[in-house]
């Protein structure tokens, strides 16, 4: 009996003294944090994509709370959450909720329709594939199909199509531009979300060469230029280019393109 009591007393004593120690330590070493930072961090997407240039969502939240960064710096944040952040900060929510405008598209339709120059047997990374003799595709503008953009996409918005080229699912794309940074062929561009058409080719080669290499690239025939009612399409160095400022999304160019190079996302 005596043993039990002494054990209880010892443990209670220990527990009490440690409790006091911890309470003292938490007071003594308390770091002051802005409670808003935690709230903002919770409202940011939390995928740490790095598109804002910060190390992660938490560090951007600190900047936003300190008024050193704008809410719009985060391209991945949904409009509702952006409004919520603005109200956390006590700012006006006017205009904050507008939908951010752009999503990525990948401009090459080659894939397995584009002929191979040689058998590539290297690391499955586009950045390595491009260094092997400038890429194994006959077309020097073609997608190298190794899927590096798929690997770096933080939200899994890019998937490989049966044709062998990756495609962006606009609804999932948060616009972080990570894929743009890794694509050695610079095939990925940001296009306004309300525009559905894009030129699915980046080749500046002449039409005859394109027909020989893949048959689905822009041959610079100019039909889309004529078909466009708002003069949004021009031919620059054998390649059709859409001026999205003028484009009305009427999709008339899609119908006239003989090689089906103008695509809808």
């Amino acid at each position: 009996m005596k043993g039990i009591i002494s054990a209880i007393l010892t443990l209670s004593g220990l527990g009490f003294s440690f409790g006091v120690l911890l309470a003292w330590a938490s007071k003594k070493f308390h770091v002051k944090t802005d409670p808003r930072v935690e709230k903002i961090t919770g409202l940011l997407p939390g995928i740490n994509c790095g598109a804002c240039g910060e190390a992660g969502c938490a560090s951007l939240a600190e900047l936003i709370a300190a008024d050193k960064a704008d809410v719009h710096v985060c391209v991945a944040c949904s409009p509702e959450n952006r409004i919520a952040i603005a109200s956390v900060l006590g700012l006006s929510t006017e205009g904050v909720g507008r939908r951010l405008s752009q999503a990525a598209v990948i401009g090459c339709g080659g894939g397995n329709r584009c002929k191979n120059k040689f058998a590539y047997r290297g690391l499955a990374d586009c950045r390595v594939a491009v260094s092997a003799m400038g890429g194994y595709k006959e077309c020097r503008f073609a997608c190298l199909e190794q899927g590096t953009c798929i690997q770096v996409c933080p939200v899994g918005a890019i998937s490989m199509q049966p044709e062998g080229v990756p495609k962006v699912i606009s609804e999932k794309c948060i616009g972080c531009k990570k894929c743009i940074a890794v694509c050695p062929r610079r095939l990925i561009m940001m296009v306004d979300r309300d525009k559905d058409v894009y030129i699915n080719c980046h080749s500046h080669d002449k039409g005859a060469l394109i027909m020989k290499k893949c048959g689905v690239g822009c041959i610079a025939c100019g039909k889309c230029v004529k078909a466009c009612p708002s003069q949004a399409i021009t031919l620059i160095d054998n390649l059709a280019v859409i001026d999205y400022g003028k484009c009305t999304n009427c999709k008339q160019c899609v119908a006239v393109c003989p090689t089906k190079t103008i695509a809808i996302r």
């Binding site: 290297g122 690391l123 990374d125 950045r127 390595v128 260094s131």
Partner: peptide, 13 residues
């Protein structure tokens, strides 16, 4: 393993 290739990738990035 394709070690040199990996290192080339690291250097390129």
């Amino acid at each position: 393993r394709r070690i040199v290739e990996s290192i080339r990738l690291v250097k390129a990035v």
